[in-house]
Structure formats: structure tokens, C-alpha cells
Simulated scan of single mutants.
Amino acid sequence: MYITITSQKMGGNYSKSATDFVGYLEKENQGLEQEDMECFFNQFGDEISAEEVIKEIDGNTAKLENMEPRFYSITVSPSKYELGKLQDNSEDLKKYSRELMKDYVTSFNREINGNPVTIDDIKYYAKIEHQRTFKGSDLQVRENQPFATKILQLKTDIRKIGNGTMEGNIKYKEKEITKLEREAPHQQEGKRIVQGMEKEGSQSHIHIIVSRKDASNKFSLSPGSKYKASNVELNGKEVKRGFDRDSFFEKAEKTFDKTFGYHRNFAETYQARKDFIKNPKIYFAALMKLPTNEKALAFKLMGKTGLPMMPSIPVTQGQLAMKLFKGLRRGVEVAIKSSSIGI
């Protein structure tokens, strides 16, 4: 499960309207018949139009400064193993979204009118998408890049030879291109993986737009707060503040597992991935204590999700070298960022 929470920006500035973001989320509906489209939904309604989403989000920004985000984007990307537990991707993920947003509100250390934040206090809209494309930050694209650079240069040379500004053998260079295309380390359906290529297999995921202001348009609720939980004095009153991301991500996993009867392996947990980066000794010690079948599955999952595979690992914790930890940690930081896990 990969989850990110980001404030929406256009360049260096926060978006003043949800129009562009909503338009981006409508891309999969282009060319489809009405009955085949995925519509926006929220906690209480389905088939919400893009126009209504824009109107509601843009109209819920009272007293926000120009340098404050108007809304946040939550992206939830289940793994192929998690998706395999679903009977109907669209309906099941819609159900999960509504449970997930209950976890979201309980992760705030805030009160509205003296009461904890509830699902009725937020304004959000969600949409299910079923396609994903490779990004420039993805491991496959980055490792294919040296081949892409050479291919681009060869194509440039061919054009120059064709217009007479360069001497050379076009057929030879075309053979070189074919060779490079074949030798690129990451392929999909016999083609070199490039940025913008659609990913194969089930890629269903959830996009959620949540307003910075509460549903009454009076209180600010920021999941981007650097505080997990603290109290501060404001206008002579003690006010709670903060959002606990760790708690939200962990609740999100447990809610998915409970809703769909999913048995989560150690390597799939948010805590394990976090320990990999921050406490590698703890991570490997826990990994080595797993039952044999669970450990084997953990290694398989690490490879499938892009995490670097470990070389031969000594059995005892004392033999685990810090140099190995640091190298793997750097690798997993990149892998996690390219996979959009929210840490």
C-alpha cells in the first residue's frame, strides 16, 4: 500500500483553484460512454460531477492566505497483491475510500467546537483510476535512461545523414538502435520501458481531494502539519494542533486488511519500510526472526516492489555490516520515493 499526502502546487505557487487538478483526474473518462465513466464520490454521494467538485473545493477557502494550500491530494495505490483480494476494483476501492477517510479524521489532534474531528467535519471528493504510466523517477525509467540517451543520439545522427549535414551509414545506426532497444534492462511486452508508457496489469488506485478548511469553512485542517500532537495557546485559549501521519498510514493498512481479509506480510507494512530507512538493524533483526515461509515471501515482495535485494545476509544480528545497511538504505529511499510511499 503506497499512500502520499501532498499540497497541490502549480510551479512554485499553491493552486488557487482545483480546476487543473480535477481536469487531470478526468483524463481516463475522455472518449468513454457515460455508463463507463468513473465519477467523483464522497462519504455520502456517488456520481458527483467535476464541476461540482471544483465549485465546492474552490468555495471552501475562507481566510486562507496566498501561501497556504487550498486543498490536499491523497493518493492511495494498493499493490497487485492487495488488488488481487478485491472482487470489483471500482466498488471495493470506493468502499475502502470511505473507511480510509474515517481513519484520516481520527489522525488529527484537533477539536471543532470542543469535539474531536469527525467524518462530517471534512469536505472531500474521491475518484478511482485504473491506469498508471511510468514516471521519470521510476526505477525502470532511470535505469533505462543511458540506453535512451544513446538511442536519441543515433536518431539525431540518422536525421543529419539524411539531410546531408553528416556522413555515415544509416542502416548501421538503425541496427545499433535495434540492439540498444533490446539490451535495455527493463522491458514490458517486448518494448523498452520509457516515461509515459502505461504500466501493465491491474493498476487501480484512488485519488482524493480534501479541502484545507473544514466543511463549515471556519476551521483549518492541515494534514501537512509538522506537528503530530501538541497544544498551543491562541488568543488566550489552549488549542490542539497536529496530524499524525504514522498513525494514519498504519490505520490505513489495518482497515484494508480487515475490510478485505488480507494477510499482510512483514515486508508490506509501513512500519517495516520506515524501519528499513531509520533503524536498519531493527528491520533486519525482525526479518530474520520471521517463519521460513513468511521470510521467503518477504524477499519475494522486496524484489517485486522495487526494494533492493540483499546479498547473502549473515544469520546473527551482530554480523550485519553497517556499510550494507547504509547502501541498502540509500537504495530503498529512492525506491520508496519512486513508488510514492508516504513517509
Rank of each mutant, 00 (worst) to 15 (best):
Thr6Phe: 00
Gln8Arg: 15
Gln8Gly: 10
Gly12Thr: 10
Ala18Tyr: 08
Asp20Ile: 12
Phe21Ser: 11
Tyr24Arg: 04
Leu25Cys: 13
Glu28Cys: 07
Gln34Ser: 12
Glu35Ile: 09
Glu35Thr: 11
Asp36Glu: 10
Met37Val: 09
Met37Leu: 03
Asn42Phe: 06
Gln43Thr: 12
Gln43Pro: 04
Glu47Ala: 14
Ala50Asp: 11
Ala50Lys: 10
Glu56Leu: 10
Glu56Arg: 14
Gly59Cys: 02
Ala62Met: 14
Glu65Thr: 15
Asn66Ser: 13
Met67Tyr: 15
Thr75His: 02
Pro78Met: 13
Glu82Arg: 06
Lys85His: 15
Gln87Val: 15
Asn89Ser: 10
Asn89Gln: 10
Ser97Pro: 05
Leu100Arg: 03
Met101Tyr: 02
Ser107Gly: 01
Phe108Thr: 04
Phe108Ser: 02
Asn113Pro: 02
Val117Met: 02
Val117Asp: 01
Ile122Gly: 05
Ile122Ala: 07
Gln131Leu: 14
Phe134Glu: 08
Val141Trp: 01
Glu143Ile: 01
Asn144Pro: 02
Gln145Gly: 00
Gln145Arg: 04
Lys150Trp: 00
Ile151Leu: 01
Gln153Glu: 04
Asp157His: 01
Arg159Phe: 11
Lys160Asp: 12
Lys160Thr: 04
Gly162Gln: 13
Asn163Met: 05
Glu167Lys: 12
Lys171Gln: 15
Tyr172Ile: 08
Lys173Met: 02
Lys175Asn: 11
Lys175Met: 07
Glu176Gly: 02
Ile177Trp: 00
Glu181Leu: 07
Glu181Met: 08
Arg182Glu: 07
Arg182Cys: 04
Pro185Arg: 03
His186Arg: 07
Gln188Arg: 07
Glu189Ser: 11
Val194Thr: 04
Gly196Asp: 00
Lys199Val: 08
Gln203Trp: 03
Ile208Gln: 08
Arg212Ile: 12
Arg212Gln: 12
Lys213Thr: 12
Ser216Val: 00
Lys218Met: 11
Ser220Cys: 10
Ser225Pro: 06
Lys226Asp: 14
Ala229His: 12
Gly236Met: 06
Asp244Pro: 01
Glu250Leu: 12
Asp257Arg: 13
Arg264Phe: 07
Glu268Thr: 14
Glu268Gly: 12
Gln271Tyr: 05
Arg273Asp: 02
Phe276Asp: 02
Ile277Gln: 03
Tyr283Ala: 05
Phe284Arg: 12
Ala286Val: 07
Met288Ser: 14
Met288His: 15
Met288Leu: 15
Leu297Phe: 11
Lys300Gly: 15
Leu301Ile: 15
Met302Gly: 03
Gly303Thr: 03
Gly303Met: 04
Thr305Gln: 08
Pro308His: 09
Met309Trp: 07
Pro311Phe: 05
Ser312Arg: 10
Ile313Ala: 09
Ile313Tyr: 03
Ile313Met: 11
Thr316Trp: 08
Gln317Tyr: 09
Gln319Ile: 09
Ser338Met: 02
Ser339Glu: 14
Ser339Phe: 06
Gly342Arg: 09
